[in-house]
């Protein structure tokens, strides 16, 4: 009872590249409708503002494909930023290493708890979300202290760049390529798919399930921290009010990009497309002018619902043909 190969392929392509197609269509529509949309300046602004979400979303893609979820990334993002700004008074090296070490450690602990004790990722990372934000508040005097970036080399990391784009955009692009190779072309990547696709089966096939999960959460923590670091460099300060609800935006972008929330399928290309799609929707709504940014959330929400419905239908088409 298999579908015809042609139809099967069409639905698979739609699943994997649907977000990219919609993104392309929106860009075309936006370019035609608004003179100020298809400008280098606007494109750069979308890319720059999307890059931080994209870095976190790369880590989240691994987590979701492995069948898990990471709710702590929003807190880790702001925690990493505050630590980076704080650390910048001791120079570039500390500004980079301190937040990455701290966020990596949190990710590692969450991964160990999830993989070794079998606790639900939702609960463990919810604890992470609350705990890490608490930590951030503790070191910033209840959020009242905003550390300013003291190191100019560090600030350049977030503000400098070439060809009209800042370094974070290039770093994101590099990370995305590395993540694609890691996911598609290494044993670790295959293990991530296997764990998310059939965990008991993967264990019986000799996949190191626990280790794979630990790495996935470690990576997600590191990337969330890195996004925070780069953002602090961009803002020249450790703003303490960022990142609330960011984890949900990231999850939305990953799912819109075609990664199944149930695990086992998805990819980096889709995720990047999903992040950019949300960025472009935001930009288009800004172009319209008289709509508030609240409207952007309504559109994003509708879009997410649409994608999930489409995934269900495509999934059914693939199974029944």
């Amino acid at each position: 009872m298999t579908g015809s190969p042609g139809r099967e392929q069409v639905s698979r392509v739609l699943q994997q590249h649907g977000a990219l197609m919609v993104l392309a269509a929106l860009v075309v529509v936006g370019s035609v409708a608004f003179d100020s949309f298809a400008t280098a300046g606007n494109a750069a602004s979308v890319l720059v503002s999307s890059s931080f979400t994209a870095i976190i979303a790369i880590g989240m893609t691994f987590v979701i494909i492995s069948g898990g979820i990471d709710l702590s990334v929003g807190s880790l993002f702001v925690f990493g930023g505050v630590l980076a700004a704080y650390g910048s008074q001791y120079g570039l090296f500390v500004a980079l290493v301190l937040p990455l070490a701290a966020c990596g450690l949190v990710g590692l602990l969450q991964g160990l708890l999830i993989a070794r004790t079998g606790m639900a990722p939702f609960i463990v990372t919810l604890a992470g979300l609350l705990g890490v934000r608490g930590l951030m508040l503790a070191i910033s005097n209840e959020g009242a202290t905003t550390y300013l970036v003291k190191d100019s080399a560090f600030a350049r990391l977030g503000q400098g760049g070439v060809f009209g784009l800042t370094w974070p955009v290039y770093i994101t692009a590099l990370l995305a390529v590395a993540a694609m190779v890691l996911l598609q072309r290494t044993a670790f990547g295959q293990n991530v798919y296997a764990v998310g696709g059939n965990e008991p089966g993967a264990a019986l096939m000799g996949v190191p399930v626990a280790r794979t999960k630990v790495y996935v959460y470690l990576m997600s923590g590191l990337l969330a921290g890195l996004a925070g670091v780069l953002n602090a460099a961009r803002l020249s300060s450790g703003v303490t009010i960022l990142g609330i609800g960011l984890e949900l935006d990231v999850i939305a972008a990953v799912v819109i990009g075609g990664t199944l929330l149930t695990g086992g399928a998805g990819g980096i290309t889709g995720t990047i497309a999903g992040v950019l799609l949300l960025g472009v929707i935001q930009s288009l709504i800004n172009q319209v002018g008289n709509l508030t940014s609240a409207f952007q959330q309504v559109v994003s929400g509708l879009f997410l619902a649409l994608v999930v419905v489409a995934q269900r239908l495509l999934g059914r088409a693939q199974r029944l043909g």
Binding site: V181, Q184, R185, T186, A187, Q190, N191, Y193, A194, G197, N198, P200, G201, A202, L204, M205, G206, V207, L260, G264, A265
Partner: peptide
């Protein structure tokens, strides 16, 4: 081999077959 097939349904046939011993090319990449 178990009664219920213990493979990963969403992965490709080849990846299921070769999981854990994928042939490596340059840079250790599959």
């Amino acid at each position: 081999i178990y009664q219920e097939v213990n493979l990963v349904p969403m992965m490709s046939v080849a990846r299921n077959l070769m999981l854990g011993r994928e042939p490596r090319g340059r840079l250790g990449v599959i």
